[in-house]
Write a protein that binds this DNA or RNA. Structure first.
Length: 785
DNA sequence: AAAGCGGTACTTTTT
DNA sequence: GTACCGCTTT
């Protein structure tokens, strides 16, 4: 035992070690970026267990599955997988769902309630807005949902909302006085469908703990120690749950960094961490200030930025060793130039430092900024991966299959019902669905139930249509009978088969169709993988892992969870700063350092918002281990317009001692003689210039050379002569057998050229996408080098 | 039911 | 610039 403990504490610094051993009473661990937070958390759990605590009495809450999984694994290595598995460790949502299932009936939900994801919720709001005859250009479903979500995060139920004068006044001011009605009806519909949205999980958990004293006792008495990761990102609903669950013993340990609170727009309350000491005056505070990730220069630069924020928990992060490189700065004319310079910088770094692709991350404030970067990375054949919203689970075909899964598990789910009732085509058209919806509304029930009501003809449904709908429902119902008796994978296959979806996608032999089919297959295979994984965990216990388990698991996954190691292997990572939180890379580029972009335009309004943007910038810088490069462009295309913005105020907030060179103070917008400013010429990449210089024969005619932007800033504004009959020269240069590179489709080989100028077409076999017929007039492609 | 249009809107998004 | 939605067209 003594040995165990020594092994656990071995290698921890003094503060870490103290935090690990302080297990009784409230504890606040303020963990700076790269300070070994995960190590402390895992060691602390291991320490608890080494002290004889039953692992099932430890509750540890995180925000992502990935974080929970990593911690569990590391604890497993320390104390053995058997013990680690008994820990109640997971995301807020996944842990609370399990509690809610046990008490679902007392809350008015079926035990098999399912979860609506964001897009389900938006569709449901959209349906309600329509139902209430409101204008969806005023009651924009996304905005309305975000208001509802905001209310829920603050535990404002429909009745509380109605009583909330401020909320009602705010809605009236934004000319949406009936927002509360949408909220009410939306809530009714979800409940009727046996569905919770993400926020409901937290709201209902609160309702349960408030209204059901037995549940409160049962649940809170199961745990003696509670730990919460990323505490700065908790919202009001989470805060109260945590408080209630720990009220019996006060063994509550929260870990976080107020400087990294960046989710206020989703209801996160930085006050939660700032006020922890007021909530628990007897609390012990530990500051993890030693940074093991970054160079002293990076740490100091980050400090100098965050010091501009008021209202922080005092702490002074530091790092030892070689100070390291100063922060680099790229000043570019346009976002294309910015991208070019970043890419060359990556290539240079790979040569000089022997770095690999996966050592680099390119961060930006908004997803739209990835485009120019992608183009340059492709052009130079640099492998990259974008962490973004368009994930596997957002593809239409995957959503279709998922909707079938959801509907089979919960036939009352109206959104899933509508999505798949006529997919594949069953001659149940819009008119029939509309009529069924009308019937359901008047009967106060769901589509599935309404389908079996008498007198549907009265709603304008023909007997034949009713028949078809019922046949569909009967199929869903018979599959539903299998949910509890059949393994997830077998049932998934049956659903794919009997729904006709498999056949639908299989029969499409176009390139896109084949991709879609592959995605559907992949989803079904992932059910198999899930079952296997669960079986491994159960270590031979003959449990049945069913489709509802799978759904619950998958509906609570995030992008980061989905991206697997193979995808990230040896690739440059592109992502928003938000997505980068919690990650680290040796070399980090923070792009688009311009006013109105970073900080974002809409965040310039209030002090509170600007501080959140500053924390975001802090997060960006502190991702880096060895070097940070900041970049901005004098002009960039935004929303179809060229925009010029001055360099970000955040650049000036960095203590100049840590900057490679000063920031240009002035900016007259694009077009001025920038080179003369402060004597700091804009860097321009020579190879880039060369590349873009138009060939002489094209330039002499006074014609624009297709696809070739003018070489310099001055020329970029010179209007090009427009001749509708002019055929750009490069087009005619293509020959059969040539290797080409297309902007969107990547590399390929020309198999055949057909048609006459200017309607020349090329049949191209792309390496990744197979054959496509391209009209040369429009195709953005060039010869591959 | 797909394709073709015109109008619109466009921060971030751990669950 | 473009992606997406909803409407009209074939």
């Amino acid at each position: 035992m003594e040995n165990n403990v020594r092994a656990i504490l071995d290698g921890l610094n003094e503060e870490q070690s103290k935090a690990v051993q302080c297990v009784e009473g409230p504890v606040l661990i303020v963990a700076g970026a790269g300070s070994g937070k995960t190590r402390v958390l895992t060691s602390r759990v291991a320490y608890l267990l080494a002290g004889g605590v039953d692992p099932s009495r430890v509750l540890a809450l995180t925000f992502t599955k990935k974080a929970a999984g990593e911690m569990k694994e590391r604890i497993g290595l320390m104390v053995g997988a058997y013990k680690a598995r008994k820990l109640v460790m997971g995301t807020f949502h996944s842990v609370f769902i399990r509690f809610l299932r046990d008490y679902s009936e007392s809350l008015g939900y079926p035990r098999e309630f399912t979860i609506y994801d964001q897009s389900d919720s938006v569709s449901a709001v959209k349906a309600v807005v329509k139902e209430l005859n409101l204008d969806d250009s005023v009651y924009k479903p996304r905005d309305v949902l975000s208001r509802i979500s905001n209310a829920k995060n603050n535990l404002i139920t429909v009745s509380a909302y109605k009583a909330d004068r401020n909320a009602i006044i705010a809605d009236t001011h934004s000319r949406r006085p009936r927002l509360v009605d949408v909220y009410e009806r939306y809530q009714q519909r979800l409940k009727q469908s046996g569905v919770m949205d993400f926020d409901d999980i937290l709201v209902n958990m609160n309702i349960l703990l408030r209204d059901n004293p037995q549940a409160l006792r049962d649940i809170s008495s199961r745990f003696s120690y509670i730990m919460v990761d990323e505490y700065q990102d908790t919202n009001v609903a989470q805060y109260i749950i945590i408080k209630k669950l720990s009220s019996g013993h006060h063994n509550i340990c929260v870990v976080g960094d107020d400087s990294q609170s960046i989710y206020a727009f989703r209801g996160a309350q930085i006050q939660n961490i700032l006020n922890f000491r007021k909530d628990y005056p007897e609390c012990k505070l530990f500051r993890l200030e030693r940074n093991y990730r970054s160079t002293p220069t990076i740490v100091e630069a980050a400090n100098s930025v965050i010091e501009h924020n008021a209202g922080r928990i005092p702490k002074k992060c530091f790092a030892d060793g070689d100070p390291g490189e100063k922060l680099h700065l790229i000043q570019a004319y346009t976002e294309q130039d910015e991208a070019v310079e970043i890419v060359s910088s990556i290539q240079k770094r790979m040569r000089t430092d022997g770095a690999a692709y996966q050592d680099f991350a390119i961060l930006y404030r908004t997803n739209a900024q990835s485009r120019a970067l992608e183009e340059q990375l492709r052009r130079r054949n640099i492998p990259y991966i974008i962490y973004s919203g368009n994930s596997f689970f957002e593809r239409a075909e995957v959503k279709d299959m998922m909707a079938y899964f959801k509907l089979v598990v919960n036939p009352l789910d109206d959104e899933s019902f509508k999505r798949v009732v006529n997919k594949p085509a069953r001659a149940i058209g819009d008119t029939s669905v509309k009529a069924l919806e009308q019937a359901a509304r008047e009967l106060g029930t769901t589509l599935f139930r309404a389908a079996f009501a008498d007198g549907l003809e009265g709603y304008g449904l023909r007997t034949a249509a009713v028949q078809k709908i019922r046949t569909f429902c009967a199929m869903i119902d018979s599959l539903n009978q299998l949910v509890k008796t059949m393994g997830a994978f077998d049932l998934a296959r049956q659903i794919a088969d009997r729904s006709g979806l498999y056949e639908l996608y299989k029969s499409d032999t176009s390139i896109e169709g084949m991709t879609r089919f592959a995605n559907v297959e992949e989803l079904v295979n992932s059910v198999a993988a899930f079952e296997e994984e669960r079986r491994d965990e159960a270590e031979g216990a003959e449990d049945l892992f069913t489709l509802d388990d799978f759904l619950e698991n998958v509906s609570l996954l995030s992008n980061v969870d989905i991206t697997d190691d193979e995808d990230t292997n040896n690739k440059v990572a592109l992502m928003t700063v938000h997505s980068a939180k919690g990650l680290e890379f040796p070399y980090v580029f923070v792009t688009g350092m311009e006013e109105n972009l970073f900080p974002s335009q809409s965040m310039l309004l209030s002090q509170r918002d600007i501080e959140e943007e500053r924390r975001l910038f802090y997060v960006a810088i502190t991702r880096a281990g060895k070097a940070v490069t900041l970049s901005y462009a004098g002009t960039r295309m935004r929303n179809g317009r060229h925009e010029s913005n001055s360099p970000s105020r955040f650049l000036r907030e960095i203590d100049s001692r840590y900057l490679e060179r000063p920031i240009e103070e002035e900016n007259e917008g694009f077009g001025g003689s920038r080179d003369a400013l402060n004597g700091f010429p804009l860097r321009s990449n020579p190879s880039h210039r060369e590349r873009w210089t138009p060939p002489v024969h094209a330039a002499t005619g006074g014609h624009a050379h297709q696809g070739v932007p003018a070489p310099s800033a001055a020329a970029a504004h010179a209007p090009a002569a427009v001749d509708p009959n002019f055929v750009p020269l490069p087009m005619t240069e293509f020959r059969t057998g040539q290797r080409i590179e297309h902007n969107r489709f990547g590399f390929g080989e020309i198999l055949e050229i057909t048609g006459k100028v200017p309607e020349l077409k090329a049949r191209v076999r792309f390496d990744d996408l197979g054959e496509k017929l391209l009209l040369l007039k429009y195709a953005k492609m060039r010869l591959a080098k």
